[in-house]
């Protein structure tokens, strides 16, 4: 039952993703080809410089034209437009993003995939940490709010949720840096680690030190929302008949709350947690930029500034892939946690 559900979901996800890649390829085809053409010219120029200069101007022109035709054929630029789009889409799906125009990875590679795969773990590290803390705080506070719903603390913290609702996390980051990093000089203003990075245990401590301000900012903005949502989910469940029935059976309140209620709340809460994580995959580009945190988000920023289209495109594709994968995993986990889906209907 569950396996069928999983399979169906994964296949849908893959199909949707492939369609999206095709749409992106179409949309950005012109731009990418422009970049490709100039890259070809660069390559040809480099080749001619390396060669013997014993050729006459006519021979030179002929040679360049020949090389150009060859390369255009290689990159399918001489084929009709649909052919080109399909070829590009297939390239992307096989993770062949081409070469960056200007940027380099820390190892000096210009392969876009290398550059991106370097940045990905850093983004995951930062946001997963922040979201874990958010969820823990959210659970603690949300449960308290649900138990004493309508009380003073509940109302007060709900107001808090609304106050930060429209506050951009990156703006708070700017303030935090301005104050803690530049005025008080307590924390570094960004980056992954100091230069040069220390080794051994000090490396990890240095990492934590650099993570402190961004994580703090994310948590301050984030935990209100998660506590409010958890409060609503749990409160909704606490009003269900089966909770009352369980209490009538004499089950102690602790078990009712942490056993029956929380277990039933697990699917929507996990959904919420994963959705926040997903939102951070794309939504925190600015945030990373402000803190100069060299993750995927920051990569967008830099590639825009430096006008490096291949990196931008590759990043977009990876982000979309991660996002879609996240959505599919979300559905799978939800299905696993909720027996109504996992086990299915009546026999």
């Amino acid at each position: 039952m569950y396996w069928r559900y999983c399979l169906k979901r994964i296949i849908y996800g893959l199909i949707t993703f492939i369609i999206l890649i095709f749409i992106f390829s179409t949309l950005f085809n012109t731009t990418m080809e422009k970049t490709l053409k100039s890259q070809i010219e660069e390559e040809i120029r480099a080749e001619t410089l390396k060669m013997d200069t014993k050729m006459t101007p006519e021979e030179m022109t002929h040679f360049i034209a020949e090389r150009r035709t060859f390369k255009q054929h290689l990159y399918h630029l001489d084929k009709p437009i649909w052919n080109r789009i399909v070829w590009r889409a297939i390239n992307v799906l096989s993770l062949n993003f081409g070469k960056a125009t200007i940027m380099k990875s820390s190892a000096g590679e210009t392969d876009v995939w290398e550059i991106i795969s370097e940045c990905l773990p850093r983004t995951i590290l930062l946001f997963t940490t922040a979201i874990c803390i958010n969820i823990i705080l959210g659970l603690l506070l949300g449960l308290k709010k649900a138990q004493k719903a309508g009380g003073f603390m509940d109302k007060l913290t709900s107001i808090g949720t609304m106050v930060v609702y429209g506050m951009p996390s990156w703006w708070l980051g700017m303030l935090v840096i301005m104050f803690f990093a530049y005025q008080l000089r307590l924390f570094p203003s960004g980056s992954l680690h100091s230069i040069p990075p220390p080794t051994g245990l000090a490396y990890y401590i240095d990492l934590l030190y650099h993570m402190a301000l961004p994580v703090l900012t994310l948590v301050v903005i984030g935990f209100w929302g998660s506590s409010y949502l958890i409060r609503n989910i749990v409160l909704g469940i606490l009003q269900e008949d089966y909770i009352m029935a369980t209490r009538t059976r004499g089950i102690p309140e602790r078990k009712v709350l942490y056993g029956h209620a929380m277990r039933t709340a697990a699917p929507p809460i996990v959904t919420m947690a994963l959705l926040s994580l997903l939102a951070s995959v794309g939504g925190n580009i600015i945030f990373e930029g402000i803190f100069s945190w060299p993750g995927l988000g920051n990569l967008y920023w830099i590639s825009i500034e430096q006008n490096d289209i291949p990196v931008l495109m590759g990043n977009l594709f990876i982000t979309t892939a991660l996002y879609m994968a996240g959505l599919v995993i979300l559905d799978l986990i939800y299905g696993f946690l909720d027996p109504r889906i996992k086990v299915g209907g009546r026999r």
Binding site: Y242, G250, H260, T264, L337, P339
Partner: peptide, 21 residues
């Protein structure tokens, strides 16, 4: 008291059992 001395059979048993256990 509850369940040992007095127990209850609810109406509309649709929703009397926790769905996740």
């Amino acid at each position: 008291v509850r369940w040992t001395k007095i127990s209850m059979v609810f109406q509309g048993a649709m929703n009397c059992l926790t769905p996740v256990y």
